[in-house]
């Protein structure tokens, strides 16, 4: 029995709250426990890229890379010279990706990696199917 539940039961025995009020408190407690359980997701460890050809002639590719590489890579990227970072930003913007590598902090990166657990990319191309997901 959790401490919060014990406290609620003690308050009933001391007459501080009515049974109806205790019922509401217990329901609120259960709701908060359920919310906590649903929001704690396992942090994904790998990013997987699978390419399945539609015809027999194509190559089937399966690549699995640990997400730790992303963390270590971002730390190494902090040592890139300023001119190189600007060129990278320019090239990304040309491709339509408005992403500034300098804005990524370790906290942002961890949040981004946690959100990858829901990431699934399915591309159905002319010659192959590409699937990207995290596990």
């Amino acid at each position: 029995m959790s401490n919060e539940r014990l406290k609620i039961l003690e308050m009933i025995s001391e007459g501080k709250i009515t049974p109806n009020e205790a019922e509401k408190l217990l329901q609120a407690l259960e709701a908060s426990v359920t919310t906590k359980a649903s929001t704690t997701k396992d942090t994904p460890r790998f990013i997987v890229v699978k390419v399945d050809p539609k015809s027999d002639g194509g190559d089937k590719v399966n690549i699995r890379v640990p997400l730790q590489v992303l963390r270590a890579g971002m730390k190494l990227a902090s040592f890139l010279p300023g001119a190189a970072k600007e060129k990278i930003d320019e090239k990304l913007k040309e491709k339509g990706v408005n992403f500034d590598i300098n804005q990524v902090t370790p906290e942002n990166l961890e949040e981004l990696i946690k959100s990858f657990s829901d990431l699934t990319v399915d591309v159905d191309g002319q010659n192959e199917k590409v699937k990207i997901f995290c596990e």
Partner: peptide, 14 residues
């Protein structure tokens, strides 16, 4: 750290 993080990498091409 980058080298150590490469453990678990799998590349398969058929």
């Amino acid at each position: 750290m980058f080298l150590c993080s490469l453990k678990g990498t799998v590349v398969e091409v058929n």
